[in-house]
């Protein structure tokens, strides 16, 4: 059996680390552990993991601080673990460069999915720029979006939004990140732009816009294009 991806788990609770180690090793991951921020940075430097699972509350320093220091020299994908929905910390963690987050308690299935997404983004973009979800096709090369085989007319802004989501498929994007990328840095607080445009996008792309399956809202955080 070939050596799987290396993952560093940073959490001060030994029970969490133990259950993650068992679940991840069963899925062919190579697991390292750290119980505090200092140890996490040391382990990351020593083992150069492919992905890091980082708890937002650590005994010696904030998870966000660990992330910030890590980002000074490594672009390793990081998945934050937060305790509560509505936690402002996780938004700042995402804005500071975290790739994704999970709210405790979470299922192993969810974690594995996020890990796969995070790892995929490390690989150079595939040559095939066509994204297919159910009956929706998005061809970035041809700037063409179709639903059930028919071309969907999108405004330039709508297209910019969907392209951004596709490029980060499966990954959560914060309001700030999207606004900054599409509208520009001075618009980062205009979240209502997103409400309006994502509403329109859903009308055009979703089967049932009231219960979206493609473009999912992450409450208080941002949006995610469901990648799988």
């Amino acid at each position: 059996m070939s050596e799987g991806p290396h993952v560093l788990i940073v959490d001060d609770e030994i029970q969490i680390r133990r259950f993650l180690r068992i679940s991840l090793e069963a899925n062919n991951y190579r697991v390292y552990e750290a119980d505090c921020g200092q140890a996490a940075l040391a382990q990351a430097a020593l083992h150069r993991p492919d992905v890091i699972v980082l708890d937002i509350n650590l005994p010696d320093m904030e998870g966000v601080e660990v992330l910030r220091r890590l980002r000074e020299w490594a672009s390793t994908p990081v998945i934050m673990l937060s305790v509560r929905a509505g936690d402002l910390d996780k938004v700042s963690a995402l804005d500071a460069g975290a790739d994704d987050y999970l709210t405790k308690p979470f299922s192993t299935v969810e974690l594995l999915a996020r890990l796969r997404v995070a790892l995929r983004h490390v690989q150079p973009a595939t040559s095939d720029p066509v994204f297919i979800y159910g009956d929706v096709q998005i061809d970035l090369a041809r700037r063409l979006v179709t639903r059930k085989g028919e071309a969907v007319k999108l405004t330039p802004t709508e297209y910019a939004l969907i392209r951004l989501l596709v490029q980060h498929a499966g990954k959560v994007l914060t309001h700030r990140q999207i606004l900054k990328e599409v509208w520009g840095a001075q618009y980062v607080d205009e979240t209502h732009y997103l409400r309006v445009y994502f509403g329109q996008l859903r009308q055009k792309l979703e089967e049932n816009p009231a219960m979206p399956r493609l473009i999912v809202t992450e409450p208080g955080v941002g949006y995610r294009l469901v990648g799988e």
Partner: peptide
């Protein structure tokens, strides 16, 4: 943490 929201989005979530 007030922000402009789309009610149908809230319902969907």
């Amino acid at each position: 943490k007030l922000e402009w929201c789309d009610i149908s989005d809230v319902i969907g979530v």
